[in-house]
């Protein structure tokens, strides 16, 4: 049976009058990589902060390793590695001091792995944090987040500030190593290609809600992008069953749709059109289609 690492149930959170999380339920099991995707203000960071106990659940519950991170911060945080979005590290500290300080809190600290990462990132241990560039700061933060080999690695926008090489080669390798060791990674990102590349599971958030969640392959299989040609000229997008987003004009439209292709074909035929070609939608297309639909729903409400 899969071991549950994170179990979030019906979690809601308000910031003043803004609903940051609205009935979010999320489960993560051991050995998997979970990617959180969403627009700015979707609630990704808020959800991650609840997992760390930095925010307390207003309604609903959060359990990490079966513990409440607010009531038992030591029990949870000693098994978690965290890289914050702001890369908040003490400016005056040197990298070797940062490593020593973090090591003291984690008996599982792997000195040789830390040294290896230090070399991989080409970081000078005698440099102060304030002397580092944004990317180097991210690397230093990543180093201390993973060097104690945490059971759960939480990365908030890990690629922010990292160059393409570090992002593709090193970050991917670190995340895969953690997952292959049977440990869990949860990360948030704006970069859909990165989520597509690194995750086993994807969770799409919009306006504080989870609008889509599942194994990456299943999610991708559930959506297609089809090119449709009609006999009639349409000034406005025609109404098609299961269509999430449409672009184009006149007689030819590109449609991102969910459900079976057969059902969609029927819908197109009913309007006197035909499906010219169809393929699996990319994550970006799914994201844009879902986010756009949610936005329309909100506006309509």
């Amino acid at each position: 049976m899969e071991q549950t690492i994170v179990d979030v149930n019906d979690l809601s959170r308000m910031f003043a009058s803004k609903r940051a999380l609205d009935g979010v339920s999320f489960r993560a099991t051991a050995g998997q990589v979970y990617g959180l995707v969403g627009a700015n203000g979707a609630g990704k960071t808020t959800l991650l902060k609840h997992l760390l106990g930095l925010l307390r659940a207003a309604t609903g519950s959060v359990r990490v390793f079966g513990l409440d991170p607010v009531r038992d911060p030591v029990g949870v945080l000693s098994r978690v590695g965290y890289l914050s979005e702001e890369r908040e590290l003490p400016e005056w500290m040197r990298i070797d001091e940062l490593m020593a300080y973090t090591q003291a809190f984690h008996p599982t600290w792997d000195t040789s792995y830390a040294r290896e990462l230090l070399n991989t990132f080409a970081l000078d241990p005698s440099k102060k944090i304030k002397e580092l560039s944004k990317g180097m700061r991210a690397q230093a933060g990543l180093l201390v987040a993973v060097a104690h080999r945490p059971e759960l690695l939480i990365l908030d926008e890990p690629s922010s500030g990292l160059d393409a090489v570090v992002r593709r080669d090193i970050l991917d390798a670190i995340v895969r190593t953690v997952a292959d060791d049977g440990r869990t990674v949860i990360f948030s990102s704006h970069l859909l290609d990165e989520v597509e590349r690194m995750s086993d599971h994807v969770t799409l958030m919009h306006n504080g809600r989870i609008t889509l969640s599942g194994a990456l392959d299943e999610v991708r299989r559930g959506y297609q992008r089809s090119r449709v040609r009609f006999v009639e000229h349409f000034d406005q997008p025609p109404s098609l069953d299961t269509a999430l987003a449409m672009e184009g004009g006149g007689r030819t439209w590109s449609v991102v749709h969910s459900g079976s292709l057969e059902q969609f074909n029927h819908s197109v035929l009913a309007l006197g059109g035909e499906v010219v070609e169809s393929r699996d939608a990319t994550l970006e297309e799914i994201f844009l289609a879902r986010a756009g639909r949610s936005r329309q729903q909100v506006e309509a409400a």
Binding site: P73, L77, S84, E86
Partner: peptide, 11 residues
């Protein structure tokens, strides 16, 4: 600071 508050130390 999130750096200190996310260390495994009791409040």
């Amino acid at each position: 600071s999130a750096f200190e508050t996310t260390q495994a130390c009791g409040t």
